[in-house]
Computed example of a mutant assay.
Amino acid sequence: MSYRDLKWITILIPTILIGGFEFLRHSGPFLQGMSMETGNYFITILTFIVSLSFSNWMFKTIKEQNNRISSEREIRAIYEERERLAKELHDNIAQTLFLLKVHLKKGKLNEAQVLVNSIDSNLRQAIYNLRTSPSEHVTLSKRIENWLDDWNTVSGIDLKLSISINENYFTPAEEVQLFSLIQEAFTNIRKHSDAKYGSLHFETHPNEWKLIIEDNGRGFSENEILPSKYGLLMMKETVSKLGTTIDISSEKNRGSKIIIKGVKKQ
């Protein structure tokens, strides 16, 4: 039912109820014997009952319509964010393939291998993101748990999870970006860290949230050129779009730690 219909129903019900009662009381044979005081009590009680019933129905209808509109808006936001990520993926792959040709012509096989790994990582993440339809309404916590469960099976790396996220805390677009960050981080751990253990701690509070990812792998120093560093650069770009902060620390043979902090957007 449209808002226009609700408006006219709201206007007509009290008019018909009160006007019709007064008309019957003054002209109808079965109400002519009713006293003025009794009629006033009767119309007051009748108006209350009808108004209560109508209000409950109307607000329930409005709530259902608002929920539907909100759901459609969230799904549209997810598709828009996916389209944006798809465009970025297309542009990045095109640039990476160009650089790959250049490195292969120059015989720089190590650099070429880094680029191939980055393409592989990006494509795998994109394929997984497209598997889940926005209409399925899978929570961010569940998506993270499902993906990391598959990651754990493939990698064989021990994993500790601590996820405490309030539902609907993040916008659909933010959820897509955060999920992409987690995918990138754990893909790097699986491919490049030689870690035996990894962990994820993700918690939300009324005004802020924190995401911590750790591993006990081989780590890296600032002057090393590693395949995983390309992924870390991509993570920093995503974090900048989220408007949050990221701190990446690592020591040789002592693992790595990524801390991402953000503020709840009103």
Rank of each mutant, 00 (worst) to 15 (best):
I49A: 12
I49F: 07
V50I: 15
V50C: 04
V50L: 07
V50Y: 04
L52S: 05
L52A: 11
S53N: 06
S53K: 01
F54L: 01
S55A: 15
S55T: 15
S55R: 03
S55H: 08
N56E: 06
N56F: 09
N56T: 07
N56P: 00
W57G: 12
F59Q: 09
F59D: 08
F59Y: 13
F59C: 02
K60W: 06
I62G: 03
I62F: 05
I62E: 09
K63Q: 15
K63N: 11
E64M: 12
E64Q: 14
E64T: 12
Q65F: 01
Q65N: 07
N66G: 01
N66K: 14
N66Q: 13
N67W: 12
I69V: 14
I69R: 14
I69H: 12
S70M: 04
S71L: 15
E72D: 11
R73Y: 05
E74W: 02
I75E: 11
I75W: 07
R76P: 00
R76T: 13
R76Q: 12
R76I: 12
A77P: 00
I78E: 07
I78A: 06
Y79Q: 10
Y79I: 10
Y79F: 14
Y79V: 13
Y79D: 05
Y79M: 07
Y79A: 07
E80G: 02
E80P: 00
E81F: 03
E81I: 04
E81Y: 03
E81V: 05
E81D: 03
R82D: 05
R82P: 00
E83G: 11
R84H: 07
R84Y: 07
L85T: 09
A86V: 06
A86G: 08
A86C: 06
K87H: 09
E88S: 05
E88Q: 14
